[in-house]
């Protein structure tokens, strides 16, 4: 299946899912992440491999990006979820894909996105008593000396 076909297949099933303009990334409203995940994990789409979870701080919102692949079928899909800075709660998919466990912890550690239903949501890279979320654009720390820009 080509990326646009995958995106069309998911959108046919879930009308609330959108496609990002210019790409084949699909944008899922945060309420429906669990049911979409459940659906695409199983055949016919069978995305059995949650490869990567990324956060991006867009200042007014935080995007969480899931990169998924299917080992058997040789295709992939990228799912995007937009979170407003007021409400950073999102359902955890770690019950569906085990790899999400650490990947979600990392996003929590660096961006402060709260994955509800996660079995063990602690910081992972930074010390457990660390303050702040370092990869947010407005993060500051006396340790951090910025390199002069070009």
């Amino acid at each position: 299946m080509r990326p646009d076909e995958i995106s069309a297949a998911i959108r046919a099933k879930f009308p609330q899912v959108k496609e990002e303009a210019g790409t084949n990334y699909i944008i899922v409203p945060k309420e429906s992440i669990l049911e979409v995940s459940e659906y695409i994990k199983n055949p016919p789409l069978s995305f059995d491999n949650l490869h990567c979870i990324t956060g991006i701080d867009r200042k007014e919102k935080i995007e969480v990006i899931y990169t998924l692949y299917s080992i058997g079928e040789h295709y992939g899909v990228t799912i995007k979820i937009n979170l407003t800075s007021e409400d950073l709660n999102i359902a955890s998919v770690s019950a569906i894909w085990k790899s999400a466990n650490w990947l979600e912890r990392e996003v929590y550690d660096l961006f402060g996105v709260i994955f509800s239903g996660h079995p063990d949501l602690r910081r992972i890279l930074n010390p457990y008593d660390w303050q702040g979320y370092p990869l947010r654009k407005d993060y500051s720390n006396p340790q951090l000396i910025a390199k002069p820009r070009l």
Partner: peptide
């Protein structure tokens, strides 16, 4: 703007 590194060992250790 943002660079995410998906490292293999991270998932392997999990």
């Amino acid at each position: 703007y943002r660079l995410k590194i998906r490292s293999p060992s991270f998932s392997n250790l999990a």
